[in-house]
């Protein structure tokens, strides 16, 4: 039941988004311009692993902050949240919204990561690990951001509060993702990158499980 509800929410959000293009256009614009700004000011930093991974994740993190904060606020403002509460179990709402936010972030990455690699002449040592850290890091950001968005959905100034509330939840994942990306950019073997992938997986597990258990309390009237 939860899964069916989640898929219904995902389908509904996808269809609405494809028509209004509200979230994706804002995020994409921000992500692309930030990527270009970062690459422009630094030039070719392909060999500077630490700087490159920090900058990449800073762009992705702020893109998430720009685009994922409104997932629930819009529902409350247009009074469609009641319909959601009546038809989908709370956990299904969380999973559906999480899936949508994750796919949005991945869509942004499909455009910006190649752009970043191109503009900074980035050399990736272990592509598989690089992609794994990217995907798991994005899942981690989406998981925390989705829960935070639900928490601030009724607040007045949602943007600033959302970013502030998200930061403590996402900071560890951000740190691990940056470290993992930095390790993945280097030549093999790099033992620490595997650890980072595992850590991100655990982090996602903890945050998603805790959010599923707590979501009922956050979402109900």
């Amino acid at each position: 039941m939860i899964l069916r509800g989640a898929m219904a929410v995902l389908g509904k959000d996808a269809r609405c988004e494809l028509r209004s293009k509200q979230a994706i256009s804002a995020v994409l614009l921000f992500a692309v311009t930030s990527t270009i700004a970062v690459s422009f000011t630094l030039g070719s930093i392909g060999s500077e692993r630490a700087i490159a991974s920090v900058l990449l994740w800073v762009v992705l993190y702020f893109s998430a902050m720009a685009g994922l904060g409104r997932s629930f606020a819009h529902e409350e403002e247009t009074y469609t949240a009641g319909l959601l509460r009546l038809t989908v179990p709370a956990e299904g709402v969380y999973v559906g919204k999480l899936a949508f936010n994750f796919l949005t972030l991945v869509a942004v990455e499909v455009v910006t990561v190649p752009l970043f690699v191109l503009l900074t002449d980035l050399r990736i040592g272990r592509v598989g690990v690089f992609v794994a850290v990217l995907l798991l890091g994005s899942l981690a950001l989406s998981a925390g951001a989705t829960t935070a968005a639900a928490m601030v959905s009724r607040a007045a100034s949602k943007g600033a509060l959302f970013a502030g509330v998200s930061f403590p939840l996402l900071a560890p994942a951000l740190g691990i993702a940056i470290a993992g990306t930095s390790a993945a950019l280097g030549p093999p073997p790099h033992a620490s990158a595997g650890t980072d992938v595992r850590l991100l997986a655990y982090y996602c597990g903890v945050v998603i499980t805790a959010s599923l258990l707590l979501f009922r309390y956050i979402w109900e009237e």
């Binding site: 389908g11 509904k12 269809r15 609405c16 028509r19 247009t78 989908v88």
Partner: peptide, 18 residues
Amino acid sequence: RLYSDLTARENLRFVLRA
């Protein structure tokens, strides 16, 4: 309220699938 970016039929499909 129903979702304004969906048709009535799509709204119904959503609530039934959910």
